[in-house]
Design a protein around this nucleic acid. Sequence first.
DNA 1: ATTGCAATAT
DNA 2: GATATTGCAA
Length: 250
Amino acid sequence: MAKNNNQVTEISKHDEGSGAMFKPADMRVLAIDANVVCLKYLVAILQKCQYRVTSTTLAAEALKILRENKNDYHVVITDVKRLDMDGFKLLEIIGLEMDLPVIMVSAEDSRSSIMKGIRHGARDYLLKPVRIQEMQNIWQHVLRKRLSDSSDKSSSFIEEMIEQESVPSIEPEEEVTRAKEKEIIGSANGDTCSVKKPRVTWSSELHVKFVDCVKKLEASGERVQPKRIREMMNVEGLSRENIASHLQVS
DNA sequence: ATTGCAATAT
DNA sequence: GATATTGCAA
């Protein structure tokens, strides 16, 4: 209260061509994630960007905070999963009721999931683990200016998707590429927070290899254990559990 | 410590 | 529907 909205317009001076060098230190961010470890990680990154950060694991508390401090936040960053209320509903409420830009973060990289977030009002959708550079650019969402291009390509494809309303088919290359960036920021954390492991696809090729190894083990009179099958197959990223699981259904 | 198996989750 | 994860008995 007693404060005027509109404190961020000062930033829009000289940024032709170089953009993204801005880190409005005064931007106030509310971070939400039901998982404390993830939240901690998120907050650490936001603080590195020098934003003022408030955080909570509860959607209910987030709403309370926002309602009690009407104009004190510029942007909300949230993961919608496992929250104490429907995360997408939360997105809508914040977007409509408080008219704040909401940025979604998630480990879910499927197109449908991204679209769902956008449909429910998310201004952007960042994949976990979020990198500092991505966070340094979020102030763009606070200023409503539409910049068709600025230094980073990573968030612009989202805008393209919005503009085209619905895209029947785009090569899934972009997501795959992004999903593969499993690098973790070099400091202020050491956790393996929510990096989504790709699920194994049992292609016929892989299955043949599997059957093949099983045969060999049987032939050599050895006990057919997942552990041994795994060793024999020697496929990167294939865990003992993967094989045990496959063994059950095949 | 590892496995098989069933139930359950994603 | 496919694969993952979990819990439990062996």
